[in-house]
Simulated assay, not measured.
Amino acid sequence: MKADADNGSERTPARRSQKEATRQRVLAAARELFDTHGYQGTTIREIARHAGVAVGSVFTTFASKGEILSEVMQSRLDRLYGELDRVMPHLRGSTADRLRTMFAIHFNFEAPNVRLFLSHIAAAYDWTLPPTARPYGRTPRLQEIILECLDKGVHQGDVRPEARLQDIVDLLMSAYAWTYRLVVTEGADAKRLTEVMDRQIGLIAEGFQPR
């Protein structure tokens, strides 16, 4: 009996290791497919084939295609948010200028895999996503960073105290996502996207500055 128990305890870590290996293969395959085929053009079956695993193995690890994309993006976004957490407290200038710097960092970070980020945005409009999926718009850390910037602006006097900060966050996030259309329509690079976003931030800032 003891030998059986020992064998069982050895098999459990092995199964866990195999499951994690499958998970990583699925994520690596999905990352490549989302970046080349887009969100709508990528299927669970294609992800499984590309990863060299059974379709059933994908579904035992992830609840949906949207959840797979969320996991792919989370590891990337954690690095981005870590960089913003490091930089933002040291920025000087107006709230609008600090927002411009923040979004410029975003654009430059996503530039090498911009189509992957377009998939992240596209998933936000998939109404079949389960609550566990976190497409663009369901990433609370981004909203928190923007709110922190705006709240600092209230204290330094260039954001009206009565302004509805969450409404400003929504406008900024909408403008940011909409600006990415230029990647599709004109092949815009990070510099071009930043220029357009800078102007949009200026317009939004006219609404939240003291009158």
Rank of each mutant, 00 (worst) to 15 (best):
Gly137Ile: 08
His106Asp: 14
Pro130Asn: 09
Gly52Ser: 06
Asp158Gln: 03
Gln40Ala: 11
Ile146Trp: 08
Ile47Gln: 10
His120Asp: 14
Ala96Tyr: 04
Ala133Lys: 14
Arg98Leu: 00
Ala51Asp: 07
Pro135Asn: 03
Thr60Phe: 04
Asp85Leu: 01
Leu77Pro: 01
Glu110Cys: 03
Leu99Gly: 05
Ala111Asp: 07
Asp126Asn: 11
Thr43Gly: 01
Leu91Ser: 06
Thr132Asp: 02
Ile47Arg: 10
Thr36Phe: 09
Ile121Met: 10
Ile145Asp: 11
Pro140Phe: 09
His106Tyr: 14
Ile146Phe: 03
Met102Arg: 12
Leu77His: 13
Phe103Val: 07
Ile146Arg: 09
Glu144His: 02
Glu67Arg: 11
Met88Cys: 05
Pro89Thr: 07
Phe62Arg: 12
Ile121Trp: 11
Leu116Arg: 15
Glu71Val: 03
Trp127Cys: 00
Thr36Trp: 11
Phe62Met: 04
Val58Ile: 10
Glu67Ile: 04
Thr128Phe: 11
Met88Ser: 12
Leu142Ile: 03
Gly56Ile: 06
Val159Tyr: 02
Gln156Ser: 06
Glu148Arg: 13
Pro112Leu: 07
Phe62Asn: 02
Ala51Pro: 07
His120Tyr: 15
Val72Arg: 01
Arg49His: 12
Ala48Met: 10
Gly38Ala: 03
Val154Asn: 02
Leu69Ala: 03
Met73Asn: 09
Ala63Pro: 00
Gly137Ala: 05
Phe62Glu: 01
Phe34Lys: 12
Ile44Gln: 01
Ala111Asn: 03
Val58Arg: 04
Gly56Met: 07
Tyr136Asn: 04
Arg49Trp: 05
Pro112Val: 06
Ile68Trp: 05
Ile121Val: 14
Ser70Ala: 05
Leu69Pro: 05
His120Gly: 03
Lys152Val: 00
His90Trp: 13
Ile68Leu: 02
His90Val: 01
Val55Asp: 11
Phe109Ala: 07
Ile47Ala: 01
Pro140Trp: 14
